[in-house]
Design a protein around this nucleic acid. Structure first.
Length: 571
RNA sequence: UGCCCCCUCGUUCAACGGCAGGACAGCUGACUCUGGCUCAGCAUAUCGGGGUUCGAAUCCCUGGGGGGCAGCCA
């Protein structure tokens, strides 16, 4: 599958919005906080699902900021939980990061550090900083206390270093059952920060890991693995989302106890978009329950979904640059994304004419059997895109919306007696209509002005309306899929007691038109090539297309000023 | 009711003790062979109360509001 045209080249310099993160790094560079070490960041996804738009922000920050300061970024898979992680996700994530326009310095896996992490655990045990606890998960929870009450020490907390060493080695050796013991850091069970109440470092899990297979049956927890992985990679700025702020003291504690490279964690707000749900777990559920057609369903906010939909890396990068980063949690208007997407496509997409809901128009005074070709600009925004020839004939299709028997005020499209322009072709005037027995409109009869060829009348006569059209004899019939928001509420999580997130699913998020009529040049459309169907929207060929049947996805509709006027008049 | 974080136009991000500004959205209008694009203009904000200061969005105190945290998930 080639998607060359949809992808702009590597990420360059979208005007970076200022950000407190930039300020911190600039400060650290000027004070030489890390000596002469190069700025090093990492993007650390867990391979337990597909990347989504929210991750795009993290990627732009991690890669973008490092690049700005001449630094490097690793792609590191945070693969410490074999029960949820799969190679499929590892592959998809790499493809998505590349698609977004970034390339990593090193490809890393937390699982590569399991031996080192194990050695360090041994050291902490030897130093009396960690112990093996035989309490059950349930008991550990009870001993932890609550948000308002301190926890209490485990009865196993004061085992000797020798006993802990022996037990931990036997945990690794596979002598104990899942869940029977854990290794915990010995910190402070009365800390107001729950993360510091002797956090679990290792659990026993006899599960096959997607990379290390059955080599290990003990796996490190996130807190113990992440900071140390950062340190191993000499990450200077480990940027993560706000919910990890409470973990920062623990992040530092491990690094200090171990006396290793002092990576520092900095938190920023995750990207939230209105009408969009970015919970990996819930996204998985949408897929598993077949509420959408897979991870790359064009309605999904996954990078693979919006890519198939026709969204572009440049637009995503522009959005991320525009929203910046802060420590405030909020929700960005989806319109912002749509704006940057339209802006990107407006410059790059070739135009074409396509009629989604066809209405036949017969030009009575046009010679029967005649055909001709009019020259049309491929992209008025970009002369270098060249021109193409589009066939015109006596019978054409126009959009049903472009004709009204009884025109409302300010309507300047086709209506009886009204003259309009067929884009790049001729002026036509509607003369009469033909209706079926049930009163429905069958076709419109017009006359044309042969002197107006190309779209202008030599007498300087003006028309208000210009519409797109497709010659019936030359038309390509295709399926067109119109997508709308997946959720109908700005906040998908806003549902009444006893309700469900999925109650907010938009029942009209997909409308399929099976018999749209397209200009013949669209037969050559390539996967990944963006088009603007003039006056309608941005589209791209879908991968479901076959030699016999083309399928197009609507990326986004064009802004519709008329709809606004009409709505206002109706209101 | 413990700890942590956060409160600036409708939304989002700036202003780092010195005239509150940009983007998106909105509204007017101009232009137009896409009711698209573009252009011009308009409107809208520092959560409240104290304090420090010549001067506070910014610093301090206090009240209010929002968010996060009690996985052997990340």
């Amino acid at each position: 599958m080639t998607e060359s045209n949809l992808e702009s080249t590597a990420a360059t310099s979208e005007a970076p919005s200022s950000s407190f993160l930039r300020g911190i790094i600039a400060e650290d560079v000027s004070t030489k906080k890390f000596g002469d070490a190069v700025i090093q960041t990492r993007f650390p996804p867990e391979p337990n699902g597909y990347l989504h738009i929210g991750h795009a922000k993290a990627i732009c920050i991690d890669f973008g900021l490092a690049d700005e300061f001449g630094g490097k970024t690793n792609l590191r898979f945070d693969d410490t939980n074999p029960e949820k992680e799969e190679q499929e996700y590892v592959d998809a994530i790499q493809a998505d990061v590349r698609w977004l326009g970034f390339d990593w310095e090193r490809l890393c896996y937390a699982s590569d550090y399991f031996p080192q992490l194990y050695e360090w655990a041994l050291k902490l045990i030897g130093d009396g900083k960690a112990y093996v606890d035989d309490l059950s998960a349930d008991e550990i929870r009870k001993y932890r206390g609550t948000l308002t009450e301190p926890g209490k020490n485990s009865p196993y907390r004061d085992r000797s270093a020798e006993e802990n060493l022996d037990l931990f080695q036997r945990m690794k050796a596979g002598e104990f059952a899942d869940g029977s013991r854990v290794l915990r850091a010995k910190i402070d069970m009365s800390s107001p920060n729950l993360n510091m109440r002797d956090p679990v470092m290792y659990r026993i899990l006899h599960a096959t890991h997607h990379r290390t297979g059955d080599e290990w049956c003990i796996y490190p927890m996130y807190d113990y693995a992440h900071g140390q992985s950062d340190s191993i990679e000499r990450v200077t700025h480990s940027m993560c989302t706000l919910e990890f702020a409470d973990h920062q003291p623990l992040y530092r504690w491990y690094i200090e106890q171990l006396g290793i490279f002092p990576s520092q964690q900095i938190e920023f707000d995750r990207l939230n978009l209105t009408y969009t749900m970015l919970s990996k777990r819930k996204l998985l559920q949408l897929v598993k329950e077949h509420r959408v057609n897979g991870w790359d369903d064009p309605r999904m906010p996954t990078l693979s979904g919006i890519r198939r939909r026709g969204f572009t890396p440049g637009a995503l990068r522009a959005l991320c640059a525009a929203v910046g980063a802060s420590r405030t949690n909020g929700s960005t208007d989806i319109e912002m994304l749509e704006h940057f997407q339209r802006d990107d496509l407006n410059h790059r997409a070739n135009r074409a004419m396509a009629v989604l809901r066809p209405l036949k128009v017969v030009i009575d005074n046009y010679p029967e059997g005649q055909e001709e070709f009019v020259e049309v600009a491929n992209n008025p925004e970009d002369p270098s895109a060249g021109t193409r020839m589009v066939p015109f004939s006596r019978e054409i299709y126009i959009e049903q919306d472009d004709f009204r028997e009884v025109p409302p005020p300010k309507y300047f499209r086709l209506s009886p007696g009204k003259e309009v322009r067929l884009r790049n072709a001729y002026f036509v005037t509607a003369q009469s209509v033909v209706k079926a027995a049930d009163g429905s409109l069958v076709e419109v009869h017009c006359t044309y002005d042969s002197a107006s060829r190309g779209g202008n009348s030599p007498d300087g006569r003006k028309v208000k309306g210009t519409m797109h059209w497709v010659s019936t004899a030359h038309a390509l019939t295709a399926e067109v899929r119109l997508y709308d928001k997946l959720f109908s509420k700005a906040d998908p999580f806003d549902f009444p007691e006893g309700g469900d997130l999925f109650d907010n699913l938009n029942p009209n998020s997909l409308e399929t038109i099976v018999d749209a009529r397209l200009e013949p040049s669209l037969a050559d459309a390539q996967l990944g090539q963006p088009f603007q169907f003039e006056r309608v929207g941005y589209f791209c060929l879908d991968s479901d297309s076959t030699a016999e049947k083309k399928v197009f996805n609507r990326t986004l509709p064009l802004k519709d000023g008329w709809a606004k006027i009409e709505k206002k008049a109706g209101a």
